[in-house]
Design a protein around this nucleic acid. Structure first.
Lengths: 153, 153
DNA sequence: TATTGTTATACTCTATAACTATA
DNA sequence: TATAGTTATAGAGTATAACAATA
């Protein structure tokens, strides 16, 4: 099915490597998701923030950090941008931590984000039967865990 | 198997998304590969250059760009670093393009890179049976192709 | 003119270190 | 002090536009 590509006579010694195919697929998927989110003025990382805050109203930044394995320092600009856009508000609850909530506007945006992600997911899994999709997700979790073992106990 | 993690009571609405798991696995694998390549003084992108040039002696930068779908502009610093390290040399062959070759030193380095990549591949696929690994690679190619369809004819 | 290679630049994501503020 | 949040900064990968050089 690569008929129009007799040009490149180059051997690709990377094409049967799991890690390399993983990265190529991930880069392509991220680019597609960015395109899907562009009309909403969001980047993928911001969309994931909206998703997790929507599912956990009143959570704190450090809880999100632990759940998503994101560095606290990297969350600050994301949260700030979403606050400046009027999608989030923060409430100083008991003492130290700040509880984060979606504003009404943020909830509308989250609905649009969810639709965009659904379209994206349907697109990238278009040629995968459901059971295969689930097997791939399971495999990706194993890969992630095995690759991460340095940092884990 | 997540016994010591009763701490985080947060719901993760992203954990069953193919795109999200793809990205997490890819980030973890890239970090692991970086660690594996550190002793060689190489980054993953430079290692992939060595691999493809080793497999295609005398190829040109633009051929590599097409095969690996890398922007020409992004190859320049990679090639320059490898040249400065004495791993590559370029020969102006017929006219316009420059043919790239590994030096003797580059070939030694390629051997070490290949070993590092092999260790890395074994590590990330540690819990995947061979047939599952092949199925996942096939799925990743489909995902990559479907995600990329904007830019393709 | 078309292709190759290059420069400059910008954006996104990730990572670390060091700081503040609150309990 | 311990935790939460912040600032600043760096590095890696990717992308585009504009340019030079060669055919």
């Amino acid at each position: 099915m690569k008929a129009p590509e007799t040009i490149s006579s180059i051997t690709d010694p990377l094409e049967n490597l799991l890690g390399y195919e993983l990265r190529r697929a991930s880069v392509a998927a991220m680019a597609a998701l960015s395109t899907e989110l562009d009309p909403l003025g969001l980047r993928p990382s911001e969309a994931s923030m909206l998703k997790i805050i929507g599912a956990n109203p009143g959570c704190t930044q450090s809880e999100i950090c632990r759940a998503l394995r994101v560095q606290p320092a990297n969350m600050v600009p994301l949260i700030n941008r979403l606050m400046a856009a009027g999608s989030l508000e923060r409430v100083r609850t008991e003492g130290r931590a700040l509880a984060i909530f979606l504003t009404a506007q943020g909830q509308v945006l989250l609905g649009q984000v969810t639709e965009a992600i659904t379209r994206h997911e349907e697109r990238i899994a278009r040629h995968l039967p459901d059971d295969m999709r689930d097997q791939v997700i399971a495999a990706l979790r194993l890969i992630c865990r095995d690759a991460c073992c340095d940092d884990l106990p």
